[in-house]
Simulated scan of single mutants.
Amino acid sequence: MTAARANCGWAGVASAVFNVSRQVGCAIGVALFGALLTSTGGTIDGLDASAVIAAVAFLLASALAATAGRRADVAQAR
């Protein structure tokens, strides 16, 4: 979505920013879930907490994506 909206001269930069943000987000997520796994009482408790947090994050991201998609459609219709 970032690269698609970028000016032709900046498409490479937009693509790079998207890829870097995705990689940084993955690294932070792995680190946080790893820390959560080791800080709880046991492995199963950590896995349960990680699964709940991941599910909530997924639902929030889905709602945000749906909202952003609708806003883009409304803006194009005008």
Rank of each mutant, 00 (worst) to 15 (best):
G41A: 13
Q23E: 14
G25W: 05
A4Q: 14
G34P: 06
T2P: 07
G9D: 07
F18K: 11
V30T: 14
R71H: 09
L37Y: 04
A4I: 09
V56H: 01
S62G: 07
V52L: 13
G9E: 05
G12N: 08
D45F: 02
A66E: 08
V56Q: 04
A4T: 10
S15H: 09
A11G: 00
C26W: 12
D73Y: 09
A68P: 02
T40S: 04
V56W: 03
I44C: 04
A31R: 00
C26P: 01
A27M: 13
F58Y: 12
C26Y: 15
A11V: 07
A66T: 07
A65E: 12
C8T: 10
R22A: 13
I44F: 08
G42E: 02
V20N: 02
A51N: 04
V30Q: 10
G34H: 02
L36T: 11
A77D: 05
D45P: 00
A57C: 12
L47N: 01
G34I: 02
V30K: 11
M1L: 08
G46V: 04
V20K: 03
A6R: 05
A66G: 08
A72T: 12
W10H: 09
T67L: 10
A49M: 14
G25R: 04
G41L: 06
A6Q: 06
F18R: 12
